[in-house]
């Protein structure tokens, strides 16, 4: 409904990429390092998505995000598989809402492994809630000026003489 034939939708092939086949705890366990590893792609995608507000125009940026995340998790699997799964298990089973608090020990083990193998530090706990400046090569969006109505009443010219009111103005206390 509402999607007419004039609306250009990307084809099935354009939209099909290998998706990340991981569950919630695993994503949450890798979240901090993933965000740091794919910071540029994530920021590009979110910038595009928020500027244009159209999912069709940010397909390529989205693919870059997924590709980067895929590479990150592949690297994790290659190097820190045991530590990662230990942390995932802890997150999954220690609390109903996958809280980080009960899993600081396994987290430290994972952090050390990721630091040694991938060279990614764990960012501070509120890193992604802070405001960051993102340097981008995206062209600036054209600024939409005020709407111009063709049948609007023309303005008076600027240099029109403005004589004093002939009889002054009525003044009662304030107006």
């Amino acid at each position: 409904m509402g999607v007419t034939d004039d609306v250009i939708l990307p084809t099935e092939e354009e939209l099909t990429v290998p998706e990340i086949n991981l569950s919630g705890p695993a994503l949450k366990a890798g979240a901090f390092h993933l965000g740091k590893a794919c910071e540029n792609q994530n920021n590009e995608f979110m910038l595009c998505r928020n500027e244009l507000g159209d999912p069709r125009k940010c397909i390529n940026e989205g693919k870059a995000v997924t590709n980067c995340a895929m590479n990150f998790f592949r690297q994790i699997k290659k190097t820190c598989s045991g530590e990662f799964m230990q942390y995932v298990n802890c997150l999954d089973k220690s609390s109903p809402d996958q809280a980080f608090n009960p899993c600081r020990k396994t987290q430290a083990v994972l952090d050390k492994c990721v630091k040694d193998n991938l060279g990614i530090d764990r960012p501070p706990y509120d890193y992604y809630t802070r405001v960051h400046v993102h340097k981008t090569a995206r062209p600036r969006l054209p600024v939409e000026g005020p709407t111009v109505y063709e049948d609007a009443t023309p303005r008076l010219p600027e240099d029109i003489p403005k004589p004093e009111a002939k009889y002054g103005s009525r003044y009662i206390f304030l107006w």
Binding site: F32, Q41, D97, A99
Partner: peptide, 11 residues
């Protein structure tokens, strides 16, 4: 927790 959610949100 919110920070972690934001980190995976683009993906």
């Amino acid at each position: 927790a919110r920070s972690a959610s934001f980190a995976i949100y683009p993906m």
